Simulated scan of single mutants.
Amino acid sequence: MALTEPEALAARVRFDLTSAGFTPVAPEHEDNPDGGLFVFTLEDHVAVSWGMHDRLSEEATDLVEAGERGEDAVIRYETTGAAMHLALGSILNAFGYRARPHAFGFGYIIRPDTP
């Protein structure tokens, strides 16, 4: 069975990001609590994001809900997320992808080139 254009693009993105030192999470493990790099297709485009281990995410969420935004775990979570989002976008663009920030949360959208 031949890959669709978005599936072929996702495979190329995974290969390039692996070349840059990332270890993508296998598509069948998108709910991975360990975090990592996620590359998957959605309709006509590829979505790329990086997530933290649930341990840090849950601790930061609990502290924010308790009104403790200045705690170290929240600062680590926000700083790590922002740094990885910037790094991921920079690397995607360096590989020639026209990556656009995702509308919600951290991550990028890449559409196949159209003539």
Rank of each mutant, 00 (worst) to 15 (best):
A8F: 06
T80Q: 09
G81M: 09
G81Y: 03
I75V: 15
H102D: 15
D62C: 06
D113N: 03
P115G: 09
I110W: 01
T4A: 08
L42Y: 12
E28C: 01
D16S: 04
G67P: 00
M84G: 02
F106A: 12
T23C: 11
E65F: 01
P27F: 14
L17S: 02
T41H: 02
T18R: 08
A10I: 01
P24V: 09
E28M: 04
E30K: 08
P24M: 10
E71L: 06
A26P: 05
A11F: 01
E78Y: 13
A66T: 00
I75R: 14
T18G: 08
R55V: 11
A10W: 01
H29N: 14
L37D: 12
V39E: 07
A2D: 14
D54L: 10
G70R: 08
V46H: 02
L3T: 03
P27D: 14
L42R: 13
A94W: 05
Y108V: 04
E68T: 05
A8N: 09
L9N: 12
H45P: 02
A8S: 14
N32G: 03
A2S: 15
T61I: 15
D44Y: 00
E58F: 05
H53N: 13
D44K: 01
I91V: 13
L63W: 03
P115C: 07
A73K: 03
M84V: 05
M52T: 07
A103K: 10
R100F: 06
S49I: 07
E30A: 13
G96W: 00
D62P: 00
E28K: 01
G81T: 12
H102S: 15
E58G: 09
L17T: 02
R98M: 14
A20S: 07
M1N: 12
G107S: 05
A11Y: 00
A73W: 00
A26F: 06
A2H: 13
F40A: 13
G51T: 08
V39S: 07
G96I: 02
D113G: 02
F106D: 13
A103Y: 09
A82C: 04
R100G: 06
D62G: 09
G21K: 07
N93P: 05
V25W: 07
R100A: 13
H45M: 12
S49E: 11
E59K: 06
D54A: 10
H45D: 08
G96Q: 02
P6G: 08
V46F: 00
P33G: 04
H29K: 04
M1P: 08
F104D: 15
T18W: 05
S90K: 12
F22D: 07
H85C: 15
A94R: 09
I109G: 08
A94E: 11
E78L: 15
P101Q: 11
V13F: 01
V48W: 04
G35S: 06
R55I: 11
N93R: 09
A11D: 03
P112N: 11
S19P: 00
G70N: 13
N93E: 15
I91C: 07
L3I: 02
R12L: 11
A11M: 02
R98L: 12
L88I: 00
A87H: 11
E65W: 00
V25D: 13
M1G: 15
M1Q: 14
A8R: 15
G70M: 06
W50V: 06
H85G: 13
G96P: 01
T80N: 10
A60R: 00
